[in-house]
Amino acid sequence: MWIYNPNTVSDTVKTVVEATKKQDTSWIMHHVLDSRELDFTPFGIVHLPELHLFGIDISITKHVVFMWLALVILVVTFLYVARTYRKSLVPRGVTNLTEVLIVFVRDEIVKPTIGKGYERFLPYLLTVFFFILTCNFLGLIPYGSTATSNIAVTATLAVISFIVIQAGGMMKNGVFGYLKGLVPHGIPIWLLPIMIPVELLGLFTKPFALAVRLFANMTAGHIVILSLLGLIFILHTYFVAPVSVSFTLFIFFLEILVALIQAYIFTMLSSLFIGMAVHQEH
């Protein structure tokens, strides 16, 4: 019979804490977190410039660089794609790929969730989708870094979504009409003191959930991959390598899926919230 012994448990926990302290796990965080340098080991490290504006640190970081890379990739790709459409209406090559995604966003996400008047929000949602998708995939290439695994980036995107949602709702229903429409019709007056705070809170939890979901999903996969590979070095044996590598490969494929799904979900939910704000009667 195993008898609960507080001392045993505390000993175990103590050992783990000691081990954690002794074993440096900062290399995982080093890969996941933002930094001031582009690490191209063994080819060298590029240090990024430090910038300050009005006392705020606006230094270029790794994630900023990868956002810019995403911007350049998207602009170049779509310049090319837009030009192929001018030549012929029949898509070919890269155009096929982008067209599938564009039509998917338009017909499967934006049209059903927003409905009438969806054209106004289409450029924003398409940009969000392709930006997040590109950032997610940039984290999967060697020496890449996932800008969307930075909470500051996802929170900013969520705030932009929040602004678009509110602006969309207010432009359609008027400022007061929109605020009045937040509380459902036909609610007893004595419930209003509860409903108003709940609905107001609901406005802010939506973008918060957007930000945390994207951030957590993009961070978690990388940590799992690095942890699985780290097993080889922690256990000090080659025999664990096949297991680690095969699991890593599996997680990597999962990451590809997650990269797509998270871009889809962020766009989908933004679109859904815009639709709810624009057509409040539903």
């Binding site: 270029i60 900023v64 956002m67 911007l71 940009t127 800008a147 500051a152 929170a155 900013t156 995107l157």
Partner: peptide, 16 residues
């Protein structure tokens, strides 16, 4: 990972 860097916020807004 939960640290928020104001510079990154600014650059995200600008970039996006």
């Amino acid at each position: 990972p939960l640290d928020v860097n104001p510079g990154v916020i600014l650059w995200t807004v600008v970039t996006f």
